[in-house]
Nucleic acid binder design. Structure first.
Lengths: 338, 338
DNA sequence: GTTAGCACTCTCGGGTTGCGAGTGCTAATG
DNA sequence: CATTAGCACTCGCAACCCGAGAGTGCTAAC
């Protein structure tokens, strides 16, 4: 529905606006990007673009800025961009530098992503569809106070303090640990709950704690995510004055992001770009997101992405998100196959 | 050096400015707070206060605002305020509601503190002077990949993936876990390092991982802190326009806050109030902090406090910080005595 | 020591103006 | 018929001015 020239002009407008943050006019386009065509022609084409809803004029005279639809067209027309190889190597290197731990990787992914795109990055830690017990361990802290350590698949550690009515020695604890560890091995929460033969009162108490931890773990669809790069968004001109950034902050600090952000992602793979008002969440109507799932398909997954103003370097954001997601998927896969 | 009346006027100015955020003039004082004295007298006294450096006039005519020195006087003259009992009960209740876990408590402390004072709260998790091994556990994930789980005092869990040259069965792992757990019990990192008799190659590898984890743990003086309530500070009028808030964000997101914030706290107990330029860190020259240590004196400690604009409700901040710190200290003490 | 009065200063909001950038339209052009 | 040059017009933005309001410093009187 757009002629090739209209498409080109729209792309120029989007690119220019993304980098300059101020409306772009026909003369500027004609001057800076020498298409063999005068400003008047560009004006005509821009009028069509406005009719079609691809651009908006914030002031009756004065350049146009992309509408959500315009951004959408731009994003669809992007050719897949790749992160330069040397940068890839650097990133991958950093993951191998750091402590070998899932939480550490997740945090690092958020930090790197934020820096790569100069925007807010958000990364949830990976989560299995149904968590399974890998190991159970009890350690006595005081006479009747013990720490339950529960290792789930994907090397996820959970801990909880337990107080017993009776005094239990570390010896007994060890025996219990071994017994329950063997018994519960690779079970889901439901399966653990079903185990009920021949357990002592203390063991019963441990069992119910395990069940509870796993139920909680399975309940929340996504973990509370790591969020990095808030500083970047405060530097963006569209957010310095308005208070829409306040809503955004509240949204980010409120704990139920996972629930709100991710309904549509769940269904399908690939990198999703959500632009402005396409967001269901009010606080995000002024923002765009580039997000994707990562992990082992059907087994364990997490979500990772970038949030910024609509005026976002989509090409770079998409390739960054895709690459970091592939890195994280690899790391998780290594852990999960165990 | 200040007469009683001057002190009163200064206190009024500080209180008024804290709540209104705009310079306060002699007439307003005379009208709103009926001291039996006219605006002219107040003007004279304000002139003295300005000479003494307690207040500053941002514009040659137009009210005065407190200087750092003025705030300092105000803070010193505060009588100790207590959190209302019912609020105390509510807070304490919330700590007992939540999962029994140190990380959870720390996070909760940050969230509550932020809400109580409507400013940024910062809480590091408690840290022992020298960490000690409480328990060692190895779990096989894949043939030659295992997870080392290290439980330190204060129920702090550390984990690390280890790859062995040889295949080690879970049986062997259990034996190793028991042996090393017994051997390293209650040892510090240095002591573990010194243990070197009769260890197999695999055990040696585990040992050096333990040593490394503990060295790292002991090295960093304070953990990376939980930070909550960034949204509050964005709402403050003094931060909406300026870019000093940007510096602040960068500072908060950069990971070495601990190193920079806390040199002076270490020496002494009690709640510290640091006002504006009293901060060594440039990014904080526009801010005030109310911070304190918590934990078990000489054994284990963390830091917790509030950051906000100079124009901060000091009375409330101090009492909040003091109370939350006492709560956290209790919780930590329970764990530590084990 | 305190107060009333007064002239002066300064900020802040609103209105005005000139400039620059950009448009829409029309007529001319290839 | 698409394209272009030219031109009148519109609008935002920054600078400026102005008056009102708030507040001060000073002086003289109490």
């Amino acid at each position: 529905m757009l002629t090739e020239r209209q498409g080109n002009i729209l792309r120029i407008i989007v690119r220019e606006y993304i980098s300059q943050a101020s409306p772009v006019g026909s003369v500027a386009i004609a001057r800076r990007y020498g298409i063999g065509v005068s400003s008047a022609t560009i004006r005509n084409e821009m009028a069509r673009l406005e009719e079609g809803g691809y651009i908006i004029r914030p002031h009756i005279s004065g350049g146009g800025i992309p509408s959500d639809k315009g951004y959408r067209y731009y994003v669809e027309s992007l050719v897949q961009e790749e992160i330069p190889l040397n940068e890839q190597r650097m990133l991958s290197h950093q993951f191998h530098q750091v402590e070998q731990e899932l939480a550490e990787w997740t945090r690092l992914a958020a930090a790197l992503l934020a820096r790569m795109v100069s925007n807010i990055a958000i990364v949830t830690s990976p989560k299995a569809m149904a968590s399974r017990v890998k190991h159970v361990e009890m350690v006595t802290l005081q006479e009747s106070l013990a720490l339950l350590i529960l290792l789930l698949q994907e090397a996820k550690l959970k801990q909880q303090l337990l107080t017993f009515d009776e005094v239990v020695s570390q010896e007994e604890m060890n025996a219990i640990s071994r017994k329950l560890s063997d018994l519960f091995q690779d079970m889901t929460g439901a399966q653990v709950m079903a185990q009920s033969t021949g357990l002592s009162p203390v063991e019963e108490q441990v069992k119910s704690a395990v069940v509870q931890i796993m139920a909680e773990e399975d309940k929340r669809r996504y973990e509370e995510p790591y969020i990095e790069g808030i500083r970047h968004i405060l530097a963006q001109p569209e957010f310095t004055h308005t208070q829409s950034v306040l809503c955004l902050m509240e949204m980010l600090e409120s704990k139920d992001i996972a629930r709100n952000l991710l309904p549509e992602i769940l269904t399908e793979g690939g990198v999703w770009v959500i632009i402005g008002a396409e967001n269901h969440e009010d606080a995000l109507k002024e923002c765009s997101m580039v997000i994707t799932q990562y992990g082992v398909p059907g087994e364990v997954d997490g979500v990772l992405g970038v949030i910024g103003p609509r005026r976002m370097p989509y090409g770079r954001a998409i390739s960054s998100v895709r690459y970091v997601s592939s890195l994280m998927s690899e790391l998780v896969a290594e852990l999960h196959t165990g």
